[in-house]
């Protein structure tokens, strides 16, 4: 029998793939938010009973990840006048293949990790590991600063799920601390991005690196040109 928790895990993995594949910034923000909300539902379904404390905590997480973060990020996106694509450094096929490979590797790893026998939901460890990897993928292969914030958010989702898998007794304490960190991080990033874009007219991280002392070489012209397409 497929449990709702398993369905959530499948949805989280599919969201990872779509995050790696989506080209638009707004779409990425929505997908990360959806992932956060769905993952927040997990403690309600994985455990046997639903204490009031857990309920309140899940409500807070859903509010934060589903409403506050997306709102902050969208605001930063609009204020910084970024409406274009996420500008991935690697293409769609490569992202998808990396993501799939990460999932395959995490399922291999998950089967070998010496975890306590508390992971009752199938695939919870591979899902969390691959979510963390997807976050790293967003961090490293996207040009925009906003996507880097998104990457942290996705990593946080992964850690949250991993926490559920590891410490079913005390997951909420760990999660609370991390969530607080990320909240501050998003807040600071939002402000910084806004200020950077006001100063430099763009938030492209590749361009920011051009601030160091560096001179491009002279362009060659004339004759037969050979290049890789």
């Amino acid at each position: 029998m497929t449990t709702p928790a398993e369905l959530i895990i499948v949805a989280v993995i599919l969201l990872n793939l779509s995050l790696a594949a989506t080209g638009s910034l707004a779409g990425c923000i929505r997908l990360a938010a959806a992932q956060g909300v769905i993952a927040a539902l997990l403690p309600l379904l994985a455990g046997c009973g639903v204490p009031v404390g857990t309920l309140a905590f899940c409500g807070a997480v859903i509010l934060l990840k589903g409403a506050v973060f997306p709102w902050l990020l969208t605001r930063a996106r609009i204020k910084a006048n970024v409406r274009k694509d996420a500008e991935p450094v690697i293409g769609y096929p490569a992202s998808i293949i990396l993501c799939l490979g990460a999932f395959a590797a995490s399922s291999w790893l998950g089967a070998r990790l010496p975890l306590p026998e508390t992971a009752r939901v199938a695939w919870i460890v591979p899902a969390s590991l691959s979510t963390i990897f997807t976050g790293f993928l967003l961090l490293t292969t996207r040009a925009k600063a906003i996507t880097q914030v998104l990457g942290y958010l996705v990593i946080e989702n992964g850690i949250y799920i991993f926490g559920l898998a590891l410490f079913v007794e005390q997951p909420l304490m760990v999660e609370m601390a991390i969530l607080l960190d990320v909240f501050v991080a998003v807040f600071v990033m939002g402000i910084t991005i806004f200020h950077i874009s006001r100063e430099f007219d763009h938030i492209d991280t590749a361009e920011l690196s051009a601030l160091r002392d560096w001179e491009p070489g002279p362009d060659s012209s004339g004759g037969i040109r050979r290049d890789e397409v």
């Binding site: 012209s221 004339g222 004759g223 037969i224 040109r225 050979r226 290049d227 890789e228 397409v229």
Partner: peptide, 9 residues
Amino acid sequence: KTRSYPVIA
């Protein structure tokens, strides 16, 4: 793959 073509001057 490489491609070669004259630069139009």
